[in-house]
Design a protein around this nucleic acid. Structure first.
Lengths: 138, 138
DNA sequence: TTAAGTGCAAATTATTTGCAGTAAG
DNA sequence: CTTACTGCAAATAATTTGCACTTAA
């Protein structure tokens, strides 16, 4: 239940009906190429692309992260007013956020059981539930 | 347990060791003057002050919200990469966030029971836990 | 061939900061 | 008096957008 279910980057894009352009494939490779889940920011992904064969502009990184999120391939996590984080694991799961280094990581979800989650008010449904556990270095 | 425990704005500031300046008193009045908890953004508080007797500049509203938060009088809630929200209720409690109107409100906390919250990793302690339930209008 | 995607630079938005003036202790 | 606070305008930081160019279908 922790594995990414797609055979390759093109398949990942196709599963969301997105055109496999050179840039998108390059970013997809950096995001899910090794089958591991990861958390990126526009800046961190941009830097990763700078160190790779296929260069992608910062504006395109921003646009692509947005497109991927809207297509359901990524999940945007808001932890910090400034930067936006994107998670390749799109399921509801809790996160640890290191306040000093501003690093985001998965928190062990097995333990977490949210009992009696408040029901959505009249005329609304729950879109998603974000649980962010902020950590302070001791 | 839902009431604000201070007699007046000056007392609220004093409880955090903050100097009761005219502007701070005015903002404190808008924030906790009626004993109700509320959620504000810099912009919304600025507008409220514009409609009140005591005018406060936007920069001072920003600085004051920051100072109040650092002093523990307010709790900053990050729901939306763009804007920052501040809650006069500084305890750990869940929030509803309306995605369309970008409105933040308290969620009924009685029901919510987070069982088996992941323990903080070695060398860290939990600073706070944010639970944001995002709502979509149906 | 043609609509969608990309890249640059300029625009936007929320927030912070420098600094001269003002007020609290 | 003296140091902290305020307000303005300018600076910053993350992100978006306009538009000419490129590319996938």
């Amino acid at each position: 239940m922790d594995r990414i279910d797609h055979k390759n980057e093109a398949g990942w894009l196709a599963s969301a009906g997105l055109r496999p352009t050179r840039q998108r494939l390059a970013l997809a490779q950096l995001l899910v190429g090794d089958g591991q889940h990861r958390h990126v920011t526009a800046e961190s992904l941009y830097e990763a692309s700078r160190d790779s064969a296929e260069r992608v502009s910062l504006a395109t990184v921003y646009n692509t992260l947005r497109v991927f999120s809207e297509a359901g391939l990524l999940r945007e996590i808001t932890v910090n007013g400034a930067r936006s984080y994107f998670d390749t694991n799109v399921s509801n799961h809790p996160h640890f956020f290191w306040e000093d280094s501003e690093e985001l990581m998965d928190a062990p979800a097995e333990d977490l059981k949210i009992a009696g989650l408040p029901k959505a008010p009249e005329g609304a449904e729950i879109s998603k539930v974000d649980v962010v556990i902020r950590l302070r270095r001791t």
